[in-house]
C-alpha cells in the first residue's frame, strides 16, 4: 500500500482534538495503566507542562507553548479513548 501525505488526516485530527481531553482515557505506554488525563500527575514546569502516569510516574504527555506555537507530545500513551 502506498502512503499519502499527512494532509489527509487533518479532518479526522481536528475533529478529535476538539473533545475535552482531560476526560479522555489513555493507556500508559510504560506500565499499561488506563486512566483519564485528569488523573495524571502534572508538573507545570517553567519550560512546559509535563503529565506523568499516576501509577509509574513515567511521562505521558508534554505541552510546550512559545513563539506563537504549541508543541504537543503524547508519546507516553499507547492510545487515547475518545467518546464519539
Amino acid at each position: 500500500m502506498t502512503h499519502i501525505d499527512g494532509n489527509a488526516m487533518s479532518g479526522v485530527l481536528s475533529e478529535l482534538l476538539t473533545v475535552e481531553p482531560t476526560t479522555a482515557r489513555s493507556r500508559c505506554a510504560n506500565c499499561g495503566d488506563v486512566a483519564a488525563l485528569a488523573m495524571a500527575l502534572v508538573y507545570p514546569d517553567a519550560a512546559g507542562w509535563v503529565a506523568r502516569c499516576r501509577a509509574c510516574h513515567e511521562v505521558l504527555a508534554t505541552v510546550v507553548r512559545g513563539d506563537g506555537r504549541t508543541w504537543l507530545s503524547l508519546r507516553g500513551m499507547t492510545a487515547i479513548e475518545l467518546e464519539r
Binding site: A47, G48, V59, T62, V64, G66, R69, W71, S73, R75
Partner: peptide, 8 residues
C-alpha cells in the same frame, strides 16, 4: 533529549 524532543 527531553525538552529538545518536545519543542525546544
Amino acid at each position: 533529549g527531553f525538552w529538545e524532543s518536545n519543542g525546544y
